[in-house]
Design a protein around this nucleic acid. Structure first.
Length: 588
RNA sequence: GGGGGCGUAGCUCAAUUUGGUUAGAGUGCUUGACUGUCGAUCAAGAUGUUGCGGGUUCGAGUCCCGUCGCUCCCGCCA
């Protein structure tokens, strides 16, 4: 015997039909003479009534033995609920199933937490019993929606002529980027594979192979420390296109997001997205992933305060730094204690201090007001757009630090003041990233995006003049202040790629050793190409309004990168180590 | 590598500030009663290595040291 329906589909349309359901006992209500069981599967709940008058003498006591999470099969008749006992909370609430025959397919231990309970349960317990946690309808819903999102993306890319091509998981370890997960090779003692941080070079090779448009729902691995929005193993919607420029990528992704919003969330998404250059993003929002759901932009007051008799500001300006501020609306009422907390916050972000002004009807109120003329105060007020009742927060110092601190303070204040509306999705493209970044530790330039990103200027003069000023043809896509993807137009000329390597301090020999296959491929007719990778987990997390990636990954790792369900990683047998020619250092 | 938070009954939490009788509540669990519940109700009952180890003390869930786990953040994440 098998089920004829799921637990979510019976309605008054099925009245008087003989049906069979299978599922889990979600909850039971035993009234002595009559017993109600809510039967659950992925599709919903159906109330089953066990009444002695409809059951054999052996079956009724068996029904009384039912407990939470038992798996049963029930056969019976669909009947309307008695008037006044309908349940509006469930889709099948107008009917119930009168059990005439049933089988207990499996009993269950008392679960460590209630599947039917909606409250919070400690995360480690959920992960240890993830198979139970995933039974909870609220949790299950995330994965049903995640599936819908992926399906929509696949359909959209298919409609746009993309080929889904798999790339290896056992890869070559390459310098640059995050720490690799390494896999020792048995067949090549002393040698290692690396798990891919992204399929970057393979997808470029596919473009050189004339595949024209590639995509993949690709697992990527980075052996770095975790955060709420960072797992060591994550999924990218990875894609690459030939004969395109930035606008082609933007339009493709805007269309993709529009499709996802329409099909999954039932919302109309406005396109095209906002576009902002890296420099603008830093100057206006203090971040390369600006949350543009609210304003509170940063104002540069360096010019306005250059003649002010306040030593801190004066020294900063003289040494080439900047004085900038944000305006916290309606915060002039803050007590000195509250402002002191903000100062500490700012200092924890890296500031040397926090200067402030309250804008009141009697003018600027601040311990440093005495250093300013009324004309200067007026100019500051005008430039920052502050009005009566507002609080101005100043940070002075080296430009990057000022941006960083004010950017973080801006987010802090927005959260405090509730300026961010729920249910708002604001996408933005961040463009014109610097090509290179100076790495203090290694005392050399490193690629800000990756070494295969095309510079905007390929001529020797620009390169020689000032490498810091070189811009990349790279772009990030930002949603509500979270980076959900990034990509670039790639280098497709061998000479440019070689120049890039040499700039990064990678010698010709090393380049040939580690990236020889790419350089070779570039020399056999590589088309202009570019692409992007979207962080699927982050995207799903944001679209579903979840706080952690763990909510949208079926079997996530803990912050120490272990799996509580399977207890991975684990020790292995000595024989396994021997087969891999491995030995622990402390055994030598 | 660094900083913060948490760890008490199966689960969620209280008792920790100020060390002091037998570590409590809700829920779940067990048993019983009950023929229309849906967070069923009512009655009775069982359940503790206070994460682990050490120390201080007449006395430690509470204070100190160490350690483990979970979590948030900084570093790190091309």
């Amino acid at each position: 015997m098998k089920r004829t329906h799921t637990c979510g589909e019976l309605s008054t349309k099925h009245l008087n039909e003989q049906v069979t359901l299978e599922g889990w006992v979600h909850s039971r209500r035993d009234h002595g003479g009559i017993l109600f069981v809510d039967l659950r599967d992925r599709y919903g709940l159906t109330q089953v009534v066990f009444n002695p008058t409809n059951l054999t003498e052996e079956d009724y006591p068996k029904a009384e033995s039912l407990r939470d999470e038992y798996v049963i099969l029930v056969q019976g008749k669909v009947v309307p609920r008695l008037e006044g006992t309908e349940n509006e909370k469930i889709s099948t609430g107008e009917i119930e199933l009168v059990a005439e025959h049933f089988e207990i397919q499996n009993i269950a231990q008392t679960p460590p937490f209630l599947v039917s309970e909606e409250g919070e349960i400690s995360e480690s317990l959920c992960l240890k019993y993830r198979f139970l946690d995933l039974r909870r309808p609220m949790v299950q819903n995330n994965f049903i929606q995640r599936h819908q999102i992926v399906r929509t993306i696949r359909n959209y890319l298919d409609d746009n002529r993309f080929l889904d091509i798999e790339t290896p998981v056992l890869c070559r370890s390459t310098p640059e980027g995050a720490r690799d997960y390494l896999i020792p090779s048995r067949t090549h003692p002393r040698e290692f594979f690396a798990l891919p941080q992204s399929p970057q070079l393979y997808k470029q090779c596919l473009m050189m192979a004339g595949m024209d448009r590639y995509y993949q729902v690709a697992k990527c691995f980075r052996d770095e420390d975790l955060r709420a929005d960072r797992q060591p193993e994550f999924t990218q919607i990875d894609l690459e296109m030939s004969f395109v420029d930035e606008d082609d990528i933007f339009q493709l992704i805007e269309g993709l997001m529009k499709s996802v919003f329409a099909n999954v969330l039932g919302k109309d998404l406005e396109i095209p997205f906002l576009r902002i250059s890296y420099d603008d993003a830093m100057n206006r929002f203090g971040s390369d992933k600006p949350d543009m759901r609210f304003d509170m932009e940063i104002s540069d007051l360096s010019k306005e305060v250059q003649d002010v008799d306040f030593r801190v500001f004066k020294q900063v300006i003289e040494s080439g730094g900047a004085v900038k501020c944000i305006v916290a609306p309606d915060c002039a009422k803050y007590s000195s204690g509250e402002i002191d907390k903000l100062r500490k916050k700012a200092e924890s972000f890296g500031a040397n201090g926090l200067a402030w002004f309250k804008v009141t009807s009697e003018g600027a109120q601040s311990p440093i007001a005495k250093f300013f003329t009324s004309d200067q105060i007026e100019k500051i007020q005008k430039k920052s757009g502050a009005s009566e009742g507002d609080l101005l927060l100043f940070v002075a110092g080296e430009k990057n630090m000022v941006h960083d601190v004010l950017g973080k303070l801006r987010l802090e204040m927005a959260e405090r003041l509730g300026l961010i509306k729920d249910d708002l999705f604001v996408f933005a493209w961040v463009t014109d990233f610097p090509l290179l970044e100076w790495d203090e530790e290694a005392s050399r330039y490193v690629a800000m995006h990756h070494p295969f990103t095309s510079p905007k200027e390929c001529d020797q003069e620009s390169w020689d003049a000032n490498p810091q000023n070189l811009r990349a043809r790279a772009y990030d896509i930002v949603l509500n202040g979270v980076e959900i993807g990034g990509g670039s137009i790639r280098i497709h000329k061998k000479e440019v790629q070689e120049k890039m390597f040499s700039f990064l301090g990678i010698s010709t020999e090393e380049a040939n050793d580690k990236f020889g296959f790419l350089l070779k491929a570039l020399s056999f007719g590589a088309p202009p190409h570019g692409g992007i990778a979207l962080g699927l987990d982050r995207l799903v997390m944001l679209l579903l309004g979840q706080r952690s990636l763990r909510d949208v990954i079926a079997f996530p790792k803990t912050q120490k990168a272990s799996c509580l369900l399977s207890a991975a990683p684990s020790e292995v047998d000595d024989s396994q180590l021997k087969g891999l020619s491995l030995k622990f250092l402390d055994e030598e």
